[in-house]
Design a binder for these strands. Sequence first.
RNA 1: GGGCGAAUAGCUCAGGGGUCCAGAGCGCCUGCCUUACAAGCAGGAAGUCGGGGGUUCGAAUCCCUCUUCGCCCACCA
Length: 896
Amino acid sequence: MTKTTELAPKYDPAAIEHGIYGRWVDGDIFAADVASERDPYVIVIPPPNVTSVLHMGHGLNNTIQDVLIRYERMRGREALWLPGTDHAGIATQNVVERKLAAEGKRRQDLGRQAFVERVWEHVRETGGTILDQLKAIGCSCDWSRTRFTLDDGYSTAVRRVFVQLYEDGLIYRGHRVIHWCPRCLTSLSDEEAEFRERDDHLYYIRYPWADAGGGTADGVVVATTRPETMFGDVCLVSHPEDERFTDLTGRIVAIPLSGVAIPIEHSTAVERDFGTGMLKVTPAHDPNDFDIAAALQTEYDTPDTMTPDARMADVPRVPEALRGMDRGDARMRIVELLEAEGLLVKVEPYRHAVRHCYRCHTIVEPRLSDQWFVRMRPLAQPALEAYRNGSLTFVPDRWGKVYENWLVEIRDWNISRQLWWGHRIPAWYCDEDGCDHITVAEETPQSCGACGGAVRQDEDVLDTWFSSWLWPFATMGWPEHTPDLERFYPGHTLVTGPDIIFFWVARMVMAGYHFIADRPFETVYMNGIVRDPQYRAFSKSLGNGIDPLDVVELYGADALRFTIVAGAAAGTDVIMDRTDLDATFAAGRNFANKLWNVGRLILSNLSEAPVPVESLDRSGLELADRWILARCQRVIREATTALDRMRLNDAANLVYHFLWDELADWYLEQVKPRLYGNMPGGDAARSILVHVFGTALQLLHPVMPFITEELWGHLPLEHGRLLAGTRWPVPDPSFDDEAAEAEFGLVQGVVSAVRTIRAEYHVPPSATLTAVVAPAGDTAARALAAERDTIHRLAKLDALETEREAEGIGGHAVLTDGTAVFVPLGDAIDVARECARLREELVRIEGQLAGVRGKLANDNFVTRAPADVVEREREKERSWGEQQETLAAKLRALGC
RNA sequence: GGGCGAAUAGCUCAGGGGUCCAGAGCGCCUGCCUUACAAGCAGGAAGUCGGGGGUUCGAAUCCCUCUUCGCCCACCA
């Protein structure tokens, strides 16, 4: 039954990865069983945009999730990784609009219904590509549960939530200044309007007197960065305690160029030190001005002087010559006109942060309009509490503070978008004159809930995040009480990037507590951001990104995954250089190749299934056997601990070093004669190799699923069961063997010492050498006796002596336990040089000795440091003291 | 204006009071095509752990401060 299929001599990831994913799917490995008795473990995927293609950020994010889910699955939990995509309102609509633009059309040309159908077409065509791409990097999602945020069931959840929040008084319609993208032609939430630094100007503009008072100067000077909004000014305000302006109260000035008369008022909102201390108030085009105006005694209009696409409006307040001009052109033109009229007092350069659309990066225009808002403060309280009482933790924790800070400062959420692609707002307005009732309902109402008149639905759709925040439970069938929801909510781990803490993470927590009365997950694992060597985030426009699928093709998915996992601690950014893929992915690529070759060596020396290690006669095992078995137990424990602590990079590196530095470099080398020569112990070695290598494959499987599965399939273990479905290894304490670890450590020490000496003295590989070793104690003596042949072979010695006195010229080394190694080199080297070397070493030892003695002479140290620490220092003093004497003796012997 | 974080080998980064602690990968130097692997083997060089101060018997690690970078938040127009 042993599969002795030969492995291809060369590791070719493309050749093996192809078939393996299908075997997992056929084996039904990824499907979570709602009826099982196991302890569930749930991750919901951060749903990528339905039209997006895989980029390295997805690669990083999803690899981490896959490591966690595969680990927990192997640990025996009912692991559910729920996949899906997001309709991504603005982003997707923009994509389709761009396609239309290529045909010379606008969405308005199609009309709403046809346009939405067109988007659906696009989504059906190219949508979900990214989910297939996730398979290429090995993601073990439960595809049977794939969801889309515009699915029918999901839409039901969205409407239920809207209605419920409305009835709770947590959703309301508000008239205020919001962020407006003049290119996307929609309002945006605070989070969607990102600040970016910009070099602008501060214009000092004189507003001339429009009353008979005359005065100190020819008017009042106001500083503004946005002269183009001045036609919407309703008044000027100064601080009530600003003495410069006290006698101007009630005076009237004229808006330059338009001549509209406006009064001067007071407001404590004015910063006296900024500009001239006099502020122009433009309630329709600045949220602060809106508040200032609202707080004044006088009831002002809110004149809107701009069109939705940010052109100067065709209204009386705007001078005719400017109407229809783009806001940027208008600004420049206005400045020219002001200058011509002598009303431009001065212009200062001014750097400030300006909000931009997070989708198209157009400068956002503050705009007065009616929008739907969610009252956030009540929702935020439980989310805040969850973090503060530890129900919700962040890895690394510092992100928790960011989360907390946002929740404390939270403001209401504008959820309506003037788009066509998305969940239409379930609110209906009454057409009857005089009836302003709004009917909010899950199902389309026949008539107005108040007067029975005809109704029409709100034209707007909901912010895409208004559906995303329901993801952890809407994907499980909520508002129905489904078995999935019962069993898999709350989930456990969320893996995401810090850039969407506010957009998504915090809101999911709020929704979880509000609608299900429980947290959506317990741990938020923050992955870093993938950057280029100049620390710039990967972006399409910079063209600095790396396509993960290119990497898969070049080096394999496992190489990509290992590089990512081993190279990135939680929360740290990952630097990748697209100009040097070889170097960037060397760690993973080289390791995958190593794994393959270790597998080849082992498999090529198996003729039939060896007996399980448990059945081996322990008394017949060699030191190296006991050593590698003990090391294996250790790596099982350490890797498990690392994964439990979400130290994925530690886990990956631990197994890497076990497999490469211990199994491949030492055990395999030790065991070769037994394998090749049909020597005694050969069968034991085969058993141990299969066991230890198999264990390493299991430990590595979450990180490198393809190659480990392939190699596992060739090993005579578990009757052909898929590795992905095996149970995580548990340490077998009967293999623990600290003595063997210490003893084999000495063997390694002797071999390395001789190799170093050989290299240091440039002894030709062919030269025959003898080593004289003085074991420091019984342990060392036992080790040397047990592994004499190993030492001979690996250190390329002809003889190993323990009786002879070390004398003459040669290389020497002292191991950590004090065992001395001496390699006589006879006439091969010159005495003067050797003397110099010995002296140098003596100086070094004496220096260290002085340090230790100084420490031990310090009463504070001796009395207050822990006993074992002090003891270790004493040990050093003894050991180095001996070395000092040995060196001195050698120098004398050489006559230096 | 607030908040958070980073600075460790040529590069990218681990390590968060004593041992494992001066580390890994890549790069570099020397010698090896030793039949699992040159994507490899063996050996090696390389860092006063950003500067300064403090706490401590003891600091890469804790505190303060400075410098330089990065990120987030923020209604001085």
